[in-house]
Computed example of a mutant assay.
Amino acid sequence: MKQYVVDAFTDRVFKGNPAAVCLPESWPSDELMANIAMENRFSETAFIVHEPDGWRLRWFTPGGEIDLCGHATLASAYVILRFVEPEASEVRFRTMSGMLTVTRQNGSGNDRRTTGEVLSMDFPAYDLKPTPVTDAMEQALGARPLEAWLGRDLLCVMENEQTVRGLKPDLAALTGLPGLLANITAAGKPGTGFDCVSRSFAPKLNVPEDPVCGSGHCHILPYWSKRLGKATLTAYQASARGGVIQATVNDGRVSLGGSAALFSVGEILPE
């Protein structure tokens, strides 16, 4: 089974969010896919199979299968468009979250953050409901949120970017909070070119911190779009690796744009 390792939401290796992309000829067992994800220890390993009606994509964390993943979708599209269908302008994946379309865009040579080819992903936005800020949130995060919202994940809004960058959360305590992931965000500093900054923690999936979380931004970006009154935003994930997401929010959908860089190509040996 061919496996590619791709750094997503970056145009250079060792940045962004690494994902493994596996291209088996037919579907392995769920147990084998889960074991490969645990062996890889990336936040996500993607599996893609070409079925009679097109490509199907599934995502596995070290803690099990997940319903939506942005960076591994970006990495998967990068692999298909570079190695399998290099003449194609887009790729469509059937997934647990419906049909996801990834389209080639042009990178901007005038923007140091997007010098490579940009791929744009059309994703569903999560419906956010306000939820009370609790002492448990403050204790788990080490800082008290100004607001809290709940979709698939918990979204906590902090006072400023410095607070988000400086968080050292209690990961065990985070598992007691609602939501699958904990996405922490604040407005970007003026003059940086970023509308918002964030970090994403996923100890429930055996992922302490996700370097750049696409599905998390399906919570983060709709919030900031409404808060700032703008449809087009640039977001920065302030993890140790860092990553940039260009986005448009419109009518319950989020268009997530980013580059990708190939780290390695390998072969998974049969059992």
Results as ranks from 00 to 15, higher is better:
M1R: 11
M1N: 04
Q3Y: 10
V5M: 12
V5S: 08
V6C: 11
A8G: 05
F9L: 08
D11F: 08
D11L: 00
V13F: 04
V13P: 08
P18S: 10
A19C: 14
A20K: 00
A20F: 01
V21E: 07
V21W: 03
C22E: 07
E25F: 11
P28V: 03
E31K: 13
A34S: 14
M38V: 05
N40A: 10
N40E: 01
S43A: 15
S43Q: 11
A46G: 01
I48N: 05
I48A: 12
E51T: 00
E51C: 04
P52L: 01
P52A: 09
D53C: 00
R56D: 02
W59D: 05
F60P: 01
T61P: 00
C69F: 08
H71A: 06
T73R: 05
A75G: 12
A75W: 03
Y78A: 03
F83P: 03
E85V: 10
S89Y: 01
S89P: 00
V91W: 06
V91R: 02
V91F: 08
R92M: 11
T95Y: 12
T95G: 10
L100F: 09
T101N: 10
Q105W: 02
D111P: 08
D111M: 09
R113H: 12
T114C: 13
M121Q: 11
D122W: 06
A125Q: 11
Y126A: 14
K129L: 14
D135F: 05
A136G: 02
E138K: 15
E138D: 14
L141G: 05
E147S: 07
E147H: 13
E147W: 11
W149P: 01
L150N: 02
L150V: 06
R152G: 01
R152Q: 13
D153S: 10
V157N: 07
V157M: 13
E159T: 13
Q162S: 15
Q162E: 15
V164Y: 06
P169H: 13
P169G: 10
D170W: 09
A173L: 15
L174Q: 04
T175R: 15
L177G: 08
P178L: 11
N183E: 15
A186V: 05
P190N: 10
G191Q: 12
G191M: 14
G191D: 13
C196H: 07
S198L: 05
R199G: 02
K204Y: 02
K204D: 12
N206W: 12
D210H: 02
V212I: 08
V212A: 07
S215W: 01
S215H: 08
H217Q: 13
C218M: 08
H219M: 13
L221S: 03
Y223D: 04
W224K: 02
K226Q: 14
R227D: 05
L228I: 04
G229P: 10
G229N: 11
T232L: 05
L233H: 04
L233S: 10
T234W: 03
T234M: 09
A235W: 04
A235Q: 02
Y236D: 01
Y236A: 04
Q237P: 08
G243D: 06
T248N: 09
V249W: 07
G252N: 10
R253Y: 09
V254W: 03
L256E: 05
G258M: 06
S259C: 15
A260F: 02
A261P: 07
A261R: 07
G266Y: 08
E267G: 00
I268F: 05
